[in-house]
Design a protein around this nucleic acid. Sequence first.
DNA 1: GTGAAAGCGCTAACAA
DNA 2: TTGTTAGCGCTTTCAC
Lengths: 358, 358
Amino acid sequence: MGHSDRRLGSQLPVTPPTLADVAERAGVSRQTVSNAVNNPDLLRPDTLERVRQTIAELGYSPNRAARNLRTRTSSLIGLRFNPVQEGTANAAMDRFVHSLVEASEEAGYHVLLFPGDDEDPVGGYDNLLRSTAVDAFVVTDTYLGNPQAAWLSQQRAPFVAFGRPWDDETARHVWVDVDGAAGIRLATQHLIDRGHTRIAWIGWRKDSPIGEDRRSGWVSTMHANGLSTTGLASRVEDVVHSGAEAAAVLLDESRPTAFVCASDTLAMGVLHTLWIRQLAPGRDIGVVGFDDSQVAQVYPVGLTSVRQPLEDVAVEVVRTLRALLSHQPVASRGVLLEPALAIRESSQPGVPVAGRPA
Amino acid sequence: MGHSDRRLGSQLPVTPPTLADVAERAGVSRQTVSNAVNNPDLLRPDTLERVRQTIAELGYSPNRAARNLRTRTSSLIGLRFNPVQEGTANAAMDRFVHSLVEASEEAGYHVLLFPGDDEDPVGGYDNLLRSTAVDAFVVTDTYLGNPQAAWLSQQRAPFVAFGRPWDDETARHVWVDVDGAAGIRLATQHLIDRGHTRIAWIGWRKDSPIGEDRRSGWVSTMHANGLSTTGLASRVEDVVHSGAEAAAVLLDESRPTAFVCASDTLAMGVLHTLWIRQLAPGRDIGVVGFDDSQVAQVYPVGLTSVRQPLEDVAVEVVRTLRALLSHQPVASRGVLLEPALAIRESSQPGVPVAGRPA
DNA sequence: GTGAAAGCGCTAACAA
DNA sequence: TTGTTAGCGCTTTCAC
């Protein structure tokens, strides 16, 4: 069929040109056009050039559905996108998604978002998998004992987890994670280097493996520096007012000069208590949070915070995914990346904050 | 071909069952199975039941690529996902994406994310469009005079914009937006109702139509209440310290008792200046921001802020998209939704904040 | 190096 | 109401 009348100006043709259109116009077979796109090395240079020219003239781009059907791939990576938790500073997920989109693009993939359903945690995965809508998944919520990773493993579905399989010793899937303990070690040492010796910890409840991991960074660094942790730790819900209460109690009972927190949300609570008590963050009391959220960045007294290298995580996730999908051996089952410390005023005694409470 | 050996336990078969597998097993034709899935009304109840049973037994789910190829659709909505701006409180985009994913799911769509490229703003759109990888786009950055909306219109690509075509009178595409001026009217009236008469505005530079729209809400509400705006307005960059500086200048020169800001980022700057000057937000000076960001929510003195109904925007966007894709007439070219005011301590003189600076 | 044939899994159109 | 035929656009296989 002739398609000479398909294009009007630079407007998209009513129905896009196909391989056959390009072949006819370039005077080659359809297969040669396909090769020009997918295996250019197979063509003679002059043929290749001619075909490429025609492709450009027609604005041809291979039809995704047809290619997907034939190759049994989709170039899509599925990611369950859960709602942000209001009232917290946790937006690491969003930052990760941005990075993942970028990293995927470079590998020729796009990211497909699907909503989570607490009633049926694997439902979304199952649908996409059975309809071969995605090539692989990236799983982000591997803690909480949710069944996704195990379920996907059992289905032999290709996936990479962002997060260690904390509570599953038998897990055999590949994962990428950030060393939270190392981040907190960084934070704790940073405060020690600035002269603090009584450094308190405000973390999550004991049933959070991530929280316990981060906490261990505080404990080990304190002990490594010959400092006591007795009476300096608190475990609370990850909400602002819990952080504020914990800070108040700790200040009254243990006189810490600094706080390391498991999250920016808790750190905000600490800052609130300091404000109430007219203590200046940084000068009077050091405070460090975790996640380098927007809150940490725009809070008037910049909040020092552990920053996860989410860009690197995304790159590593995509790299692992590619290996998985091309059936290459995966170098190692897990990759642990080092976070950094975003240092701001809240941990800097040397940087007095203008107009601190008298 | 027989697929009896395809399934092992509840594990995903090596190659998923097809329509033909279901048809053979149910003793019907392929078309009948297809109808059972897509036009169940056409089947006799007992046939339908039998086919459905077989579908369930086999765990059959229609192959997406095949369906896409045949129907020339993808059930995918493309969305350009730009990186968050660090150092600001603007995360409305992320919240919108969450809502869009949910709303799309209910309409049978998934959201495909692709990265933006400042060098080639329409590149990502062009690729997806020409390869028929998505059915439609949602465009979120319609201001800034960027060419996406116009380009997509010219390509006759189905899309809905979140945001009005501010700077293009000739635009004919459909859009959904939030009435920023109405939000600011709400904020301003709220402050007036609480006794403020000298209410200052801190907004963006004049070349931002969104900023000018929001500003108009302040102007109109002030005038409607017989209040002067003279010397009470400032236009700055959307960064914290600009907000802080503007607040300082305004306080010195015009003695406002409250601030309405075009963004939470600017409001944070105001709060910083108040803190430096030992003025209590809410009691001494009222402050209202815009976007109800996480920052507004977790800041120790809760920041009153205009909240965009992003969930409703997403629902409206998807509804419009469906109409567009099914070639139904679109009711109206533009839909304007009303924001709400999330009231917190920063605008409440009646709610004294514990431990405010003496 | 290039071309012809086959078929991926599905659904629109039509026939029975 | 159900079945048959054809073909969406592409790539894999194999012949030339």
